[in-house]
Design a protein around this nucleic acid. Structure first.
Length: 395
DNA sequence: TCTGGGGTCCTAGGACCC
DNA sequence: TCTGGGGTCCTAGGACCC
């Protein structure tokens, strides 16, 4: 049986949620994102704002210049998470195979559901009306024989529509499209391909592999060309959870004050730690990210002696990386970030020789952090703080 | 115009082991 | 005293996506 994959994508998600909460925003140009007076960028713009050229990822200051009458909204992760969960729950009523791809989109394997919901387009209509009724948001759905085709099709369907690409018609569907329509071709790849005279996916699909390899690298060239021909996987990956967890912040003003940087790093580490413990996993590595005033961005990583989930372990490792990095390049910094990676589900057998009393799983740091999580859940995040972060409150 | 925050995947080099 | 080849782990950086 030919696979039937849906890609379901909420329309202008952040803006749409803000309008559910505050209906006075309906019909106005709305920009969700950072402050236009500081270093904010646009996360999402309503269609009314897009008319003025406002796009996501552009600086909020520029957006304001393009569209002075736009309403700027800060946005709340928490709120978006709530809507996202409701949305995913609706999808799971239609198929057990749902793969969330981000906060506002998911793939569904709808193969063989005809008898339950009718042919694909009819099923898509049912899903969309349930999303509208229960989550108060509109969704667009792309239907194809692979995740790749479904994803591109949902973009064609936008806003508030359905687009089906029949099995076997994928290559023809892609052929006239511009390069950037293919997920995986960004600004760099587009530039390289344009220099070869390639403008459409059809041209890319037929192009000689030799020059493509020289432009994109051997592996990338072959995978991009395969995708341009409409060939993609229909396999959904379900329920693996995050592979890394990180938190970062950009300062209002660049700083090279070690006390300040170190204090910020501790707060970020605690935020990461809370999410890590919530996931039930343990980290085998800790990473630091620094962006200097001149936009040079570095990352440094260490592997921990044993998997850990405690705040102090993350903070200590991050501090050590920070100290080394700032010794090597002492310049003002605009962004600092901390992350954990190589997450493991289970804790291996601990060697008796290993000193894990303080940092390891079930060790002092892990248990203390867990206790702090419980207190924070009951009384709020600021109810309790570990030693050193109190003196350094100056964000 | 001046660039957020959260992720994923890939590449490439060096260390280390057999 | 002139050095192979394969595999795995670790680290750094970059492209890309939402």
């Amino acid at each position: 049986m030919k696979p039937v994959i849906f890609h379901v994508d909420l329309d202008a998600f952040f803006v749409a949620v803000e309008r559910v909460v505050d209906p006075s925003l309906i019909g106005k140009p709305v920009v969700v994102g950072g402050s236009p007076d500081g270093r904010g960028v646009v996360t999402s713009a309503s269609y009314e704002a897009r008319v003025f050229g406002v796009r996501s990822a552009m600086s909020a200051a520029v957006a304001k210049r393009l569209c002075p009458e736009a309403v700027f909204v800060r946005g709340s992760r928490h709120l978006y998470g709530k809507f996202s969960r409701q949305f995913m729950d609706v999808l799971r009523d239609f198929s057990p195979l749902v793969q969330p791809a981000s906060i506002d989109e998911a793939y569904m394997d709808m193969t063989g559901t005809d008898r339950l919901f009718g042919p694909p387009v009819e099923a898509a209509t049912k899903i969309r009306s349930r999303v509208t009724n229960e989550v108060q948001l509109t969704a667009s759905i792309g239907i194809g024989e692979s995740k790749l085709v479904a994803k591109v099709a949902s973009n064609v369907a936008k806003p508030n529509g359905v687009h089906e690409v029949p099995a076997g018609a994928s290559a023809a569907f892609f052929a006239p499209m511009p390069l950037r329509a293919l997920p995986g071709i960004g600004p760099k790849a587009e530039k390289g391909l344009r220099m070869l005279g390639i403008k459409t996916l059809g041209q890319l699909a037929r192009f000689e592999i030799g020059p493509l390899r020289r432009s994109l690298g051997v592996n990338h060239a072959e995978s991009i060309q395969r995708r341009a021909r409409g060939i993609g996987s229909a396999e959904l990956s379900i329920g693996q959870g995050a592979k890394s967890i990180s938190a970062e912040t950009t300062f209002g003003e660049d700083s090279d004050d070690m006390d300040f940087l170190s204090g910020t790093l501790q707060k970020l580490s605690e935020r990461v730690g809370v999410r890590l413990r919530k996931s039930g996993k343990f980290a085998r590595s800790v990473s630091l990210k620094l962006r200097y005033h001149d936009w040079e961005t570095i990352s440094r990583q260490v592997t921990l002696p044993a998997p850990a989930d405690g705040d102090a372990t993350i903070t200590t490792a991050g501090r050590e990386l920070l100290r080394k990095a700032m010794t090597k390049r002492k310049a003002k910094v605009r962004l600092v970030g901390v992350g954990v990676g190589n997450l493991t589900e289970q804790v291996g057998q601990m060697s008796l020789l290993e000193d894990v009393a303080s940092s390891g799983p079930g060790g002092l740091d892990s248990r203390l952090s867990g206790t702090m999580d419980k207190i924070r859940t009951r009384f709020g995040h600021d109810a309790i703080q570990r030693g050193q972060s109190q003196a350094k409150k100056r964000e």
